[in-house]
Structures are given as C-alpha cells and as structure tokens.
C-alpha cells in the first residue's frame, strides 16, 4: 500500500465512506500532501464508491483543493481592496524577489508556492497572508520575508 492509499484509508475510517465525507477526506489529503494527485483522487473515488469524475468535479471547484503539485508551504497573499490599499503589491513583489518565483509558481526546491487569494477576512489589519493554515496580519515587505525565512529554516 502506498503512503497516499494508507492516508486515505485512515481518513475514510475517521469520516466514513458516505458522499458527505468527501470534503473532509479531500481536505485531509491536502493537509498532508498539499495537493490532490491523480492517484489520490482515484483512490478516494474507489473508497467512497463514486466516480472519479465526481471527485475531480468537487476538487476542481475549490481554491484550497489544488489538483496541481504545490510546495510544502503555500503562501496566499490577500489581494482584495483594503489589502490592496494597504500595500499588498509591495509585499507580493518582495516575496517574488526573495523566492525567485512569480505568483502561481512553486520554488525549485518545492518548499514554497506563492499565490494570491480573495478576501481573507482581516481588512482592518491588512496586508495579510496565510502560510498554510497560519495567518499573518499587518505585514510589511520586510516582515513577509522574515516569515518566509523562518519557514525555510523549519523544514
């Protein structure tokens, strides 16, 4: 059994194999592997006894259920209006220069993916970014780089 198969078996054990369990199972896979591989989606379909097309249909709808490979740390910078006004462009530029990638791309070492996101719900403390599930409000370009460096050291 591959790691992915074991993970999915475990998740289905926890959430059940009904259709209603599809989202928690997919979310659990993304939590571990950062994206849904073809193998993972086929395996989920088999476990829940639904067609793989249905799994892909659901997965492809949601921004956080990526179906293309992502880095270990996914950075999402809020781009909605108040964060825009508070300087998200400078933050993104600083991150692009530090990570040597453009928005939407993953670093060569597969550690970081840089993305933008719609309103993250911190409009009074913009600019804000998420690194995986962790939130960092009121960042400056300098602070954003510090945060990325901390994550780079961790892994």
């Amino acid at each position: 059994m591959t790691n992915t198969q074991a993970l999915i078996k475990d998740l289905v054990g926890k959430h059940g194999n009904s259709r209603n369990a599809l989202m928690p199972v997919l979310q659990g896979v993304v939590q571990q592997e950062r994206y849904l591989s073809e193998e993972a989606m086929l395996e989920v379909a088999r476990e829940l006894d639904i067609s793989a097309a249905e799994v892909y249909g659901t997965a492809s709808f949601y921004t956080f259920l990526d179906t293309v490979p992502r880095g270990k740390c996914i950075i999402r910078v809020c781009k909605t209006i108040t964060c825009h006004m508070a300087g998200k462009d400078q933050v993104i530029q600083a991150l692009e220069e530090t990570l040597k990638v453009k928005v939407g791309e993953t670093t060569v070492d597969r550690k970081f993916t840089l993305l933008t996101a719609n309103c993250l719900g911190w409009c009074h403390k913009g600019p804000v970014m998420l690194v995986n599930d962790d939130v960092y409000p009121e960042i400056t370009p300098h602070r954003a780089i510090e945060i990325v460096e901390e994550y780079a050291k961790k892994k």
Partner: peptide, 25 residues
C-alpha cells in the same frame, strides 16, 4: 465542518451542497 476557499459557499444552498461533498453551486 470546514470550507475550502469558495466565497459562493456562503450562499445557503451552495453551503449545503458543499457539506454534501459537491461543487458549491
């Protein structure tokens, strides 16, 4: 239950669809 980054799922019937493991339509 947790969402996965779709604004439309705040619409009540889309939210039900999402909880049922479907696209949030």
């Amino acid at each position: 239950k947790s969402g996965s980054g779709a604004y439309i799922c705040g619409e009540e019937s889309a939210l039900f669809e999402s909880m049922e493991g479907k696209r949030g339509e």
